[in-house]
Simulated assay, not measured.
Amino acid sequence: MRRLRTAAAAALLATALVTLTAGPAPAAAHPPHRPAPKAPAEFVALQDVAPTIRQEIRYHTPHNFVGEPIDGYREPLCIVTEDTAEALAKAQRSLLKRGYTLKVYDCYRPQRAVDHFVRWAEDLDDQKMKAEFYPRVEKNRLFADGYIAEKSGHSRGSTVDLTLVKLPAAPTRPYVPGEPLKPCYAPKDQRFPDNSVDTGTGFDCFDTLAHTDDPRVTGTQRANRQLLKTTLERQGFTNLPEEWWHFTHKPETFPDTYFDFPVSRRSLAPHHH
């Protein structure tokens, strides 16, 4: 037994000598830290310019056509170029006099979020949100029909998705993942509740009924779309004919640049905090 302990001690001593001779183990290699990209100084948080505009940033939540929060949306925050924010503030002042407020669903959208949409669209097995957002469109048609693309004007900072809310308005209840889904073109009292006015479809409805001037949309629904459109057009916005909620302020501050900074206060220049 003593001989075994002696042998064990000798082995430990030998190991210690080897360790001392070899010196300390090399430090594990760490990848270089890459700071998140920052927004140019021309970008602002909309609430700093037009604090009364409501914000319901859908891609920060799981209530969207993907069914999960989207890459790059670190905060439920509307970021746009400063001239876009000022134009929205003017439109808001006009609408408040008539008893309405604007509500934005999406503003600046980083390229990483668009890439997330593309990956989702290529996964034909993931159709968990189909019953609400694209009931009448096959998922393998989303690229061909123009609902999903590899670039988005939102990434340039002058495009917003928005609607009207009649004042006073109760808040919209939160979406509960897994709850039964209703078609986005169903009557307003049947689809997911939204405190916005009735425009004939919900936001991000992949359906021809969402075309701004679709002839099937009549009466109050058409009047609501036209009020939104004419109010924004007076402030230099152009509507995308396929989406009643989609508007771009012209001329764009960055007409050819697709940004990828995260949607976060930390992305903005310090003087805009």
Rank of each mutant, 00 (worst) to 15 (best):
C78V: 14
C78G: 07
I79M: 09
I79H: 04
I79S: 01
I79E: 04
V80N: 04
V80M: 05
V80L: 12
V80F: 08
V80I: 13
V80D: 03
V80W: 00
T81D: 07
T81G: 05
E82W: 06
E82F: 01
D83F: 00
D83A: 14
D83I: 09
D83H: 11
D83P: 00
T84L: 06
T84N: 08
T84Q: 06
T84I: 09
A85L: 08
A85D: 06
E86S: 08
E86A: 08
E86P: 04
A87Y: 02
A87I: 01
A87Q: 00
A87C: 10
A87K: 01
L88S: 01
L88M: 12
L88E: 04
A89T: 10
A89C: 12
A89L: 11
A89S: 14
K90S: 13
K90W: 08
K90D: 11
K90Y: 07
K90L: 13
K90I: 11
A91E: 00
A91M: 00
A91I: 01
A91H: 02
A91W: 03
A91F: 06
Q92F: 08
Q92K: 06
Q92Y: 13
R93N: 15
R93M: 13
R93E: 15
R93K: 14
S94I: 11
S94Y: 11
L95G: 01
L95W: 00
L95E: 00
L95Y: 03
L95S: 03
L95A: 09
L96T: 13
L96C: 08
L96A: 15
K97Y: 09
K97D: 15
K97E: 15
K97A: 15
K97H: 15
K97L: 14
K97G: 14
R98Q: 14
R98W: 08
R98A: 10
R98T: 10
R98K: 14
R98D: 13
R98V: 07
G99Q: 11
G99H: 12
G99D: 13
G99E: 10
Y100I: 01
Y100P: 01
Y100C: 06
Y100R: 05
T101H: 03
T101W: 04
T101I: 02
T101K: 05
L102V: 07
L102P: 00
L102Q: 05
L102Y: 03
K103N: 12
K103Q: 10
K103V: 10
V104H: 02
V104D: 00
V104N: 03
Y105W: 15
Y105F: 15
Y105H: 15
Y105K: 02
Y105D: 07
Y105L: 05
D106Q: 09
D106R: 03
D106S: 09
C107F: 06
C107I: 06
C107T: 09
C107Y: 05
C107H: 00
Y108H: 04
Y108T: 08
Y108V: 09
Y108A: 03
Y108F: 11
Y108R: 03
Y108I: 06
R109N: 09
R109S: 07
P110I: 12
P110M: 07
P110Q: 08
P110V: 11
Q111E: 11
Q111Y: 05
Q111G: 05
Q111V: 14
R112M: 12
R112T: 14
R112F: 10
A113V: 08
A113T: 07
A113Q: 00
V114G: 01
V114P: 01
V114W: 04
